[in-house]
Each structure stands twice: as structure tokens, then as C-alpha cells.
Design a protein around this nucleic acid. Structure first.
Lengths: 251, 251
DNA sequence: GTGGGGAAAACGTCTGACGTTTAGCGTCCG
DNA sequence: CGGACGCTAAACGTCAGACGTTTTCCCCAC
């Protein structure tokens, strides 16, 4: 909310209701298109009319139509290509994009007093052990191999997620549950935590310990030992929390 | 991704990498401003220069600056007001906005084969019992009263979340944990589920049962019986899952 | 057959103008 | 003296038209 006007003279009755008298045209157009996309009337891949035609269709100018498209495109509902055969297309839903957006939003919230890093750590403590259990119960051979690979992958000190195809262990584990929702909830948290921990003074010896934990958990999962996997992951997260609390909190 | 051009003649090598040669100016401006906002250089409430000046500052026209602002505003990073004393202001981070956005994104994903309603139900089964436990451990008198009120609130058949101040029981419970992150993860799931269940044929007798569960859980929380609260919530969610599986899945 | 050079379609950007909203202030009348 | 009315100015909202840029496709020359 924008800054309240400095409480000028007259007592504002209850709450400064700042209603928007009329929604701007670009907003109306964007809302209408969004509704149609969400309702499935415009399936992914559909090519919208070009900007000039779109404007005519809604009775607005091309500039206004363009602003509406910018809104939708920044919400990843459409994307725009240039050149002949270019145009605006309805996007395929993309979980990775959602993870990114949520992570970004969390990054903003975590700077406020409303959301504390300890809240993220608590959520993680709730999520990841359960994920480890599910992964142990469900992972097929290929998934097990991916988890093992992630646990064994060499750690790059400077740039996390450096090599192509090298995913973070925790990310891999969330995906190994086969439940995309768990990834969607857990991954943004991990991303924020990793960002905050970056270049906190953590010694190599401690990273070795972390890697050992990862390998142990991976083995539990490979052998289908759900209970042990869950317990080991809980210990691991608790240990990590200690690290974060020491170095990362107000970094 | 836009529809692949229909595999014309030549075999595309590995993956149709559609790189963006140059990022449009409006995108560069938006990215630059976003960076500054996220870095804290432009605290919430800051008033940006007017559109014309902003354009001059970046060496672009006012239209381009406007498109950049539309991008940021649709991401809830800024908001614009009209009139004298109007302008573009850096937004206060708003958890409710985040919940909305995530819910909307989930609504899209849940239409794909990647994310199934059963995944949401599983995530909920993981989250809410734990939330009930935490609430029982932590809730102060005021919070307990809110939870009781939410459990006792009359159910409006037609419009859920009808009365002002009447929040859904599950929402209230998530907030009662005192951990905003749990609300951020759980609430969008609940929103999507509620949307899908709407006007599925659920009988009044079943709703009565649901309400009874809610009251029981509320009492456990009021009395600080963490284990019982968790267990009761688990049973409740399992029961609800049966409801969803019967009526809501492909509604 | 093959390579290169238009041509065309669509987005990207600019310019300038005018409409619309809203807070604030001055004026006028009671 | 005070309050209501109405004007003004700042900023966003919208429009119209023009031109540049990117990219694909196709035709033509070699």
C-alpha cells in the first residue's frame, strides 16, 4: 500500500479504503484474456491475434493492448516472439517458473518482520524428512540413481548448481517423491536459504559432513528404508539449521 | 513454449533452443528496477520519478518506461496511483498477494498431468496435522479464540468465506501456528481444493461431520493437547480426502 | 542444387497530443 | 469566521501514427 496521506485534518472513519473507481483499460483487457486462458478457452500454444487486431477486438489502441500483454507475459501466461511467424502465444504451464516466482516472492517477504528465516527452517524440517520417507517408499531404479548421483556430485565452492545437469541434493530428493507439489513447496524455501547462506563462512570440514549425510540418506532411500531415511533427514536438517543459525541469519 | 514449427524438413539437432538475441528495452528497464527494489535500494513506499522522467533516466521513451512499470506492477512490486500526488510507489510486501498468486499458478498446473489433485491432498496431509500440533503448542489465548470462532462459524452453503471476518477453519489454523511460511504453503493448496470442490454434491450431513471434527480439533488446541490435535487433524484430512476423491476429482 | 538476397509479418520503440483522475487551494457566499 | 464550491496542476491513461528491428520464407541467380 502506498504511504497514507498524512492523516489530514478530518478523521478517517475506519480504514482508508482506497477504491479504484475505474479499472484502467489495459487491466480490463488483461483480466479478460487471463480469464479466458484460465478457463481453458485459449489452450496452451494458441496464437493470439496480433497486437493491432487485438486492440481492435477490444476497442482499444495498440498501446493499451500491448500493456495488457506485458501484464500477462510477466505472469508467464503468454510469451511473445518477434519476426514473421512471431506473435503472442499462450504459454505451457511451467513448474520451474512457478518455483522461481515463489522463491522471489519469499525473498521479499523474508526481509520483513512477518517472515523470519527460522520459519523457513521450521517448514523445511517439516517437509523434507517426510519427503525422504516418501522417496524411500516410491523411488524406482532410475530415480534412486539420480539421488545417488546428486549425493555424490562434487561440490563446487564458488557457484552452487554450477555444472549442467548437476542439481542440488535436496532438490533431487523433493523430486524423487514423485509429488510435484512437494517440490513446489520445498524448492523455493531451499532457494532462499541457499541465497542467504552464500558466502557465509562455512568451512570445508563442515561441508564434508553434509555430504556424508547426503550419501547416508541416499543409501537409505536406495534400500527402501523409509523410517531411517526420514530420521536421517531430520537429523541432517537439524544440523543444517545450526549452521544457518550461526552464519546465515542476518547475512 | 510456443508450438514447435511443424518439424519442417531439416532435423532439429537436439532441442529447439530459442534464444532471445536481445532483450527488449522494456524488459531491461523492468529488470534493472526490480534489481534495485529487491536489493533494498528502493524501500517500500518510495515514490519513483514520473513516467516521463523515468524514461529520460533510462534513455527510453515514456511508452517503454510504462511497459516496464506494467511488468513490475503485475508482479506486485510497485503500484500506481492517478491524480496529482499520484505516481508509482514501491509496494509493501504482502503475504496475501503471494498466496493469491501461488494459488492461481497452482490452479493452472493442476490442469496438467504433472500435478494431480491427489498430490495436493498428500501435501495437505503432510502439512496440516503438523500445523495442528504446532498450534496446540503455541497458540495464545487470543489465537485460541480465533480458532474456536472459526470452528463454530456457521457454514454458508453458497458462498464460502462469505461473511466479513469469517475465515476458513483451515486457514485460521495455519495462521495459528505463528509461522507464516506454513500459511504460504498450505493456503494456496486449500484454495485450489475448495475451488474444485465447489458445487460438488456434498450433503449437509457430511458437512455436519466436518464441523464436528473442526470443533474437536479446536478444543484439542485450546487445551494444548498437541498429539491429539495432530492425530485428529490427520483423521480429518483423510476423511476429507475421501470426500474429494468421490466428488471433486474431475469436476 | 545450393546459396544469397529481398519481402513480408509481427513485435519494438518513439513522438506528440489529449483525456481523466485527484489533491490541494483559493474564492465566494452565508 | 467558516464551510462549500470550483478551479488548477500534476501525474497517469489512452490514442494515433510512424518508423525501426527481427525473423522467416521464398524466389532467383549462379
Amino acid at each position: 500500500m502506498p504511504p497514507q496521506p498524512p492523516a489530514s485534518g478530518t478523521s478517517a472513519p475506519v480504514a482508508h479504503l482506497r477504491v479504484q473507481r475505474v479499472r484502467p483499460a489495459y487491466r480490463q483487457v488483461a483480466d479478460e484474456l487471463r480469464t479466458q486462458i484460465l478457463a481453458g478457452a485459449l489452450p496452451a500454444g494458441t496464437r493470439l491475434p496480433n497486437e493491432a487486431e487485438l486492440g481492435r477486438a477490444f476497442g482499444v489502441s495498440r498501446s493499451t493492448a500491448r500493456e495488457a500483454l506485458r501484464v500477462l507475459s510477466s505472469q508467464h501466461l503468454v510469451e511473445t516472439l518477434r519476426g514473421v511467424q512471431g506473435g503472442t502465444f499462450v504459454s505451457e504451464p511451467d513448474p520451474a517458473r512457478v518455483v522461481e516466482d515463489v522463491g522471489s516472492a519469499l525473498g521479499v517477504l523474508v526481509m520483513t518482520p512477518r517472515l523470519h528465516v527460522s520459519d523457513l527452517l521450521e517448514a523445511r524440517l517439516l517437509l523434507e524428512p517426510a519427503a525422504a520417507r516418501l522417496a524411500a517408499q516410491r523411488a524406482d531404479a532410475e530415480t534412486v540413481e539420480a539421488v545417488r548421483a546428486a549425493a555424490a556430485a562434487p561440490r563446487d565452492d564458488r557457484d552452487p548448481s554450477g555444472f549442467v545437469g548437476h542439481l542440488d541434493f535436496h532438490t533431487t530428493l523433493l523430486m524423487a517423491t514423485g509429488n510435484l507439489m512437494l517440490t513446489l513447496m520445498g524448492q523455493p524455501v531451499n532457494d532462499v536459504l541457499r541465497t542467504r547462506l552464500r558466502r557465509a563462512g562455512v568451512e570445508a570440514r563442515e561441508w564434508d559432513k553434509v555430504d556424508a549425510c547426503h550419501r547416508e540418506i541416499a543409501e537409505h532411500i536406495a534400500e527402501g528404508r523409509a523410517g531411517e531415511a526420514e530420521e536421517a533427514m531430520r537429523d541432517h536438517i537439524v544440523e543444517l539449521r545450526r549452521l544457518y543459525e550461526r552464519d546465515g541469519f542476518w547475512a
